[in-house]
C-alpha cells in the first residue's frame, strides 16, 4: 500500500496528559499499521469546540479554525486535514464552509490572520479519521491487516452526535449509521446493529455544567448496551468516550446500578486486532479495564 499522508489536527484533549491522550496513542499505532503518515499542523490552536459560543462571537470563533487551516495550507500543502476529535472536525469543517459561503467574513478572517502573517485560501478538504478509514482506506484493506480477530467479543457501536451530525460519513444515515458495526465485524468481533442508543447524545460539554441531566442520558446509553449483551462500547469521539466511561461510579451511586462497561475507541480495537501490545493500544488508560482486549493483546 502506498503511504498516505494527511495534515493532522490532534486537538487539545489528545495532548500529553490530557483526557484523550490514549486516543492519540492508539491512533498512532493504527496509522503505523495502515501506512498512514500524520503530519501535525504546526502550532495549531483550540477550535473552541461547540461550547465556545458564549464567550466567542461569530468571527473570533471562525478565526480560530481559520488559523489552523491557514497553517495547514502553509506547512502541509495539498494534504487533506484530518481530525480525530469529533468537535475539532466539526468546528474546522463548519468554519471552512461558513467562510467559503460568506466572502465578507472570509475577508475579515483574513485581515485578522494577516496580523500573524497568515492567509487562508480555504479549499482544503477536512475529514474525520473515520472518513479516512472508511472512504480512503476501505473495509477490505482494514480487514486484511487483522492478525488477532476480536472473536467472541460483543461490541456496541456508539457513534454519538458530532461524528454523525450534521456532516456524517458518506453513504451513512443520520438515524442509523452502520459503519462502527461494519468495522467491528471487519475486525472479527460481534456487532450489535440494533443498538438503539447508537446516536443518542451523551450531553457533550453539558456533562460538566449539567451533570445530572447528562448522566441520565449516559445511563440509557450503557443500559441499552447491557441489554444487548455487550462486553464493551466502542466510539469515535473523545467526549463520548469520556462521558460514557468515567462517570459510571457516579451513575451507579445515583441510580443503584452496577455498571462496569469498558468504553474504547475504534483505534483501540484496531491496535489490538492488528496484534499490537496493550501499551500501543493504550489499554492501560482505561479507567474501566477492557479485560478481553488485554487478554487478547497478551496472547
Amino acid at each position: 500500500m502506498a503511504k498516505r499522508q494527511y495534515s493532522f489536527y490532534p486537538g487539545c484533549s489528545s495532548q500529553k496528559g490530557a483526557s484523550s491522550s490514549n486516543y492519540l496513542i492508539s491512533v498512532q499505532t493504527m496509522c503505523e499499521e495502515l501506512d498512514i503518515q500524520l503530519n501535525e499542523i504546526p502550532d495549531w490552536n483550540c477550535c473552541s469546540a461547540s461550547i465556545g459560543y458564549a464567550g466567542g462571537g461569530e468571527l473570533p470563533r471562525l478565526t480560530l479554525s481559520a488559523r489552523n487551516i491557514a497553517l495547514s495550507e502553509q506547512h502541509n500543502p495539498g494534504q487533506d486535514i484530518v481530525a480525530t476529535c469529533a468537535a475539532c472536525w466539526l468546528s474546522t469543517r463548519e468554519a471552512q464552509e461558513r467562510l467559503h459561503e460568506d466572502q465578507s467574513l472570509l475577508a475579515e478572517a483574513n485581515s485578522a490572520l494577516a496580523e500573524a502573517g497568515l492567509k487562508l485560501k480555504g479549499d482544503t478538504p477536512i475529514k474525520h479519521m473515520a472518513e479516512v478509514l472508511i472512504e480512503d482506506i476501505g473495509y477490505e484493506a482494514i480487514g486484511a491487516k487483522v492478525k488477532k480477530p476480536l472473536e467472541g467479543i460483543k461490541i456496541a457501536g456508539y457513534v454519538g452526535c458530532q461524528t454523525n451530525r450534521p456532516f456524517g460519513i458518506s453513504g451513512e444515515s443520520f438515524e442509523n449509521p452502520k459503519y462502527l458495526d461494519k468495522l467491528v465485524e471487519t475486525l472479527g468481533g460481534d456487532s450489535i446493529p440494533g443498538y438503539e442508543k447508537k446516536v443518542q447524545c451523551c450531553g457533550g460539554a453539558l456533562a460538566f455544567s449539567e451533570p445530572e441531566k447528562s448522566q441520565e442520558m449516559v445511563k440509557g446509553i450503557i443500559e441499552a448496551a447491557y441489554d444487548h449483551g455487550a462486553d464493551m462500547i466502542v466510539t469515535p469521539c473523545p467526549v463520548c468516550q469520556m462521558n460514557v466511561e468515567v462517570y459510571q461510579d457516579q451513575i451507579n451511586a445515583t441510580y443503584g446500578t452496577k455498571f462496569k462497561m469498558p468504553v474504547v475507541y475504534y483505534s483501540t480495537l484496531m491496535a489490538v486486532a492488528y496484534g499490537r501490545s496493550a501499551k500501543d493500544a493504550a489499554l492501560n488508560a482505561q479507567i474501566i479495564p477492557a479485560k478481553q482486549l488485554e487478554a487478547l493483546a497478551a496472547k
Binding site: C12, S13, Q15, A18, S19, N45, C46, S48, A49, I51, G52, Y53, A54, G55, G56, L64, A205, L206, F208, S209, E210
Partner: peptide, 22 residues
C-alpha cells in the same frame, strides 16, 4: 446559569494559551 458560566470559562481558558488547559 451553569452552562453560560462554564462556556465563558472555556472560552477564557482557551484564549489565554491558545489551547485548553483541562
Amino acid at each position: 446559569q451553569p452552562t453560560a458560566k462554564f462556556a465563558q470559562l472555556f472560552w477564557d481558558n482557551l484564549m489565554k494559551k491558545g489551547r485548553v488547559n483541562e
